[in-house]
């Protein structure tokens, strides 16, 4: 078998792989240059490492250092300069801050669930139909390349009480007798967030479903499953990691979003990012704002990390 590689090549997949490996080894062995990268010496590694230094330096200076300073100052008293946990204690003990945090979390969680649910079937259809995808995905992704601010303007044009298109249309159609004031309250913000969330979710989930082999579903269908059942029981579990990742991204975006709450009346609901901004600028409580920013960051990153841990557990057990 080993003597005649020409024959072995045609037998089956494994033999071909073995043949290919032997072939590449004989070709590579005279040429010391082609040694695997893992065997490189420290001098070589230092050479390659040097190329990553500029990028690392910039990240250290403009991301790690500021974030470390933020953490440090949140642990230092603004007036006396002594080390203190007062800002964290003050935030976490205040029912006012906790209520705002809870409102924000509820809003973010609701928006995440609804936008993922709305986006799932759309992403599935786009992933399975190449023609539809090449036409629709560029159209759907346009809002992703717009600042949140433009989405805010669009929402005002759509939902404003007297001048908004929706209210005017519903009144003209006789469904409403007077305009509804949903824009400057939680429904308006939820719609604006949901719009942004659906756009993100469709883009990510389309990519996720494209990695799921459609033949697996076909196999389930030939074995007697319905189309819908095959999609729900075969493709959906395979796409679960992507779905959780998209949900975590939307959640952390909404929790820390600032533009939409302020543009659409920053009072009800009072989102935590608005509170941080007011502490920073209006109330001049900088270190308190830093501490609250750290708390929110910990929440956002915690949700993402928890999603990943949950997925790795869930994935290994299956």
């Amino acid at each position: 078998m080993a003597d005649e590689p020409g024959k072995v090549e045609t037998v089956d997949g494994k033999a071909i792989a073995g043949y290919a490996r032997r072939f590449s080894m004989t070709a590579a062995s005279p040429e010391r240059l082609a040694q695997p990268s893992a065997d490189r010496g420290w001098r070589d590694r230092l050479f390659y490492r040097a190329f990553t230094f500029p990028a690392l330096l910039v990240v250290a200076g403009t991301a790690v250092l500021p974030l470390a300073l933020l953490l440090f100052w949140s642990l230092v008293d603004q007036r006396s300069g002594e080390a203190t946990l007062r800002y964290y204690a003050q935030s976490l003990a205040s029912p006012y801050f906790l209520r705002i945090l809870l409102t924000t979390i509820l809003m973010a969680a609701g928006v995440t669930v609804v936008s993922v649910m709305l986006a799932l079937p759309m992403a599935y259809v786009l992933a399975r139909h190449t023609l539809l995808r090449s036409i629709l995905v560029p159209m759907i992704s346009i809002p992703r390349m717009l600042p949140f601010v433009v989405v805010g303007y669009a929402m005002v044009l759509l939902l404003a009480p007297y001048t908004g298109v929706m209210n005017k249309a519903l009144i003209a159609a006789g469904i409403l007798s007077e305009p509804v004031f949903i824009l400057f309250g939680w429904p308006g913000q939820a719609i604006a967030f949901g719009y942004a969330g659906v756009v993100i979710a469709i883009a990510i989930l389309t990519g996720v479903f494209m990695t799921v082999d459609p033949q697996l579903e076909d196999a389930a269908v030939t074995l007697g499953a319905g189309r819908l059942e095959a999609a729900l029981t075969v493709s959906m579990p395979l796409a679960a990691p992507g779905i959780v990742a998209a949900a975590a991204l939307i959640f952390s975006t909404v929790v820390t979003s600032y533009a939409i709450p302020v543009m659409l009346n920053s009072r009800t609901p009072y989102m935590v990012s608005v509170l941080i901004y007011n502490n920073l600028y209006s109330l001049q409580e900088r270190h308190l704002a830093y501490a609250q920013a750290i708390i929110v960051t910990a929440l956002a990153i915690g949700v993402t990390t928890a999603a990943q841990i949950f997925l790795s557990r869930f994935g290994s057990r299956r």
Partner: peptide, 9 residues
Amino acid sequence: VPSITLGIA
């Protein structure tokens, strides 16, 4: 890291 935190930092 959320943009708002990095911005404040």
